[in-house]
Every structure is written in C-alpha cells, then in structure tokens.
C-alpha cells in the first residue's frame, strides 16, 4: 500500500517581511501574518499546495515534506 507523502509550507522567519501576499492566496486560510512581524503556518490546516511559496515576493516560503 502506497503512503501519501505529506507536504507543508515552511517560512524562513528571519527574512519574512510580513507583507501578507501569502495569506491572500491561501485557499485554506492556513497561513497568517502574526502581529505584523512574520507569516505563521497553521500546520493542521496546511496541505502544502505551494500557492503561498509561488506568490511570496521575497521567496522565503519553502514546501517541505513532513516526516512522520
């Protein structure tokens, strides 16, 4: 039986400018700007579709595989 690999968006906290472009495109509202400082991913909601990573003007979001 094949197991489906889970993916999730991971934000580089130090380089995030908190512009909110990611939050705008997320279809599941799984990424939000925390207090104007940085983007935070809700791990329970994120399915790793990659829309935020594509949109991020600073390209600081990476889609990573989640190891169980």
């Amino acid at each position: 039986m094949g197991t489906r690999i889970k993916r999730r968006a991971v934000v580089d906290d130090t380089a995030c400018v908190a512009c909110g472009c990611c939050a705008k495109v997320c279809p599941l509202s799984a990424i939000q700007i925390w207090r104007g400082v940085r983007a935070v991913v809700n791990a329970d909601k994120c399915v790793g579709c990659g829309k935020c990573a594509k949109e991020c003007p600073a390209s600081v979001i990476e889609i990573q595989e989640v190891r169980p």
Binding site: V17, C19, C21, G36
Partner: peptide
C-alpha cells in the same frame, strides 16, 4: 522579479514591521 517585489524593500513596510 515577482509582481510585489516592491513589498520586500518598501520603506513603509520596513518601518511598520
């Protein structure tokens, strides 16, 4: 670069952050 690249170095954005 990307459409909203300005947001990365926008002085207002840097200041508000």
């Amino acid at each position: 670069f990307k459409p909203r690249s300005w947001c990365v170095y926008c002085p207002m954005g840097t200041m508000t952050q």
